[in-house]
Amino acid sequence: LAADAEQTDWSALVFRVRDHQDRTAFAALFRHFAPRVKAFLMKSGASEALAEECAQDVMATLWQKAKLFDAERASVATWVFTIARNRRIDALRKSRRPEPEDLPWGPEPEPDQAEVFEAQQETERLGAALSQLPLKQRALIERAYFGDLSHSEIAAETGLPLGTIKSRIRLALDRLRQQMDVKATER
């Protein structure tokens, strides 16, 4: 089953939702992600009914915002997480969380396939690393994301391969900034 999930190209499904309003692709995304969002919200303290409602909201938002999804910089799971996080803030009356300034470039119409693949691979590698952590450390990280910890309790030294993701994103940002500079000087 796990092998199956690894082989599903979630971003291709989002592109089908984006380009063709493909309901079959949406249904496949729903079957995988909606129950995970619901579980996430319940672990964050939402009742089952509220979590169910919010999970449906999150999936409807995925439909609405499919054109804003940037597959080069985030996997679908990561993108779904950010939508669920915002929905949770409203639902559980958590502190407002301003977003950083938008990067001056949106998602590219034809994302680089290798970059898209890398983003998804990294989430999977990160997931594998997370599941191999000692139980206590893993529970600590999960509780942090469920909104259950004060920042002072969170251990920074987790041994997770965050550095590689960071360097890849950093490289992508540098490259994009260079391109923007070139474009700006050409004008």
Partner: peptide, 14 residues
């Protein structure tokens, strides 16, 4: 963004 990816991994997990 790397910590967002960790959130993605956490959401995949249960």
């Amino acid at each position: 963004m790397a910590f967002d990816a960790l959130g993605g991994a956490v959401i995949e997990d249960s």
